[in-house]
Each structure stands twice: as structure tokens, then as C-alpha cells.
Simulated scan of single mutants.
Amino acid sequence: MGLFSKKKIETTLTAPIDGQLIPLEKVQDSVFSQKMMGDGFAVEPSDDKIVSPVSGTVESIFPTKHALMIQSKHGLEIMLHLGIDTVELNGEPFEIVVKKGDQIEQGAAIGKMDIDAIKAKQKLPTVIVIVSNMDQVKNISEVTPGQVSVGADVQTIQSK
């Protein structure tokens, strides 16, 4: 290791909700499955409680409460997207307990989503975690599909 070599910076993303972990390519929305927004993973939820997949600062919460951005301490921009096409529900099935500017720890409560209400509106409740600034990513691990518990380690990102 040279005198000026950079220390390897790794961030581990955890499951934001209980459910079935799926690779991003399997999400039933081409914007996400084709990784147009960035890389990450998704969970088909079996519970309604949502926690932060990373420690950081809440940078923004969409007015429709279906998505929020968290900046990790190492500068990764993490989007937490609740459901597919749920922007059309105008925030009704979501209860968000954090606000812009909050410093949150990995695993801290973010809110709840009413899965039954989302399904009743013919929408999918898939929870998607995306690293949106992939230009800062050197390597991102694959995910192993299967049952996942909230807070379980899911994906490791190595920053540039």
C-alpha cells in the first residue's frame, strides 16, 4: 500500500422492510429494472414498517411521500422509493415520520405504508432502494434473492 493510496470506503445497505428480496432487474418497472435511476435492490414487502437502509441526512421527501432521498456520510445518494406508480396516490397510503434535514441512523424508523390500500388501487407495493449517484461507486455487490428481515445486510457499495 502506497503512501497516498486511498482507504477503501464501504457502505452496507440494509433491508428497509420485511419481505422478499429481489434483484433490481426483476422490478416490474423498466425505469428501475433497466437501472436508469441507478443500481440497488428491491423488496416485495410483507410488513408495513419502513426503516432507513443507511445512516445519513434526509435530503428530500417527495410531496407525495412515495420517495425520499438520503445522503450517506460518504456522499452516496440513496433513494428509497415506496411502491410502483404510487406517485399517483398523492401520499394517501404513506405515513412518513422523518423530515428534510433530519440526521438518521441506519435502521431508524422512516414511516409506514398501507400495503392493502396500495394493492386496492391496482399498484405494486415494491420498496426500491437505489444508489442514484453511481458516478461515485467503484463497486456494488450482487443481491441474493430470498426472504429478508428489516435491518438485514443486503448490499455493499465501495465508493471511489
Rank of each mutant, 00 (worst) to 15 (best):
Q158P: 03
V137C: 09
T14W: 07
T86G: 07
K8F: 13
A67F: 04
G83Q: 14
I61K: 00
T86R: 00
D135M: 13
H74S: 05
I115T: 04
G107Y: 02
N90L: 06
M79L: 06
L89S: 06
F32E: 10
I78P: 01
L82V: 12
T11F: 07
G2Y: 11
L68M: 01
V137D: 13
A15Y: 00
T86E: 03
V43K: 01
F62Q: 06
P63M: 05
E44K: 14
Q34A: 06
I96Q: 05
Q122R: 11
Q155F: 03
K35D: 14
K65M: 08
T156W: 15
P23Q: 10
S5K: 15
Q20I: 09
Q103A: 02
T126N: 13
N139F: 13
E59Q: 06
S52I: 02
I157M: 05
G38Q: 08
G146P: 10
L21Q: 12
K8Q: 07
E88R: 02
L76K: 03
V148H: 03
K7F: 13
P63W: 05
L82A: 09
F94C: 01
I84Y: 08
G83A: 04
H74A: 14
T86A: 04
T57I: 13
Q158L: 08
T126F: 02
F94S: 05
K26E: 15
G151S: 01
P45M: 08
Q106N: 12
I118W: 00
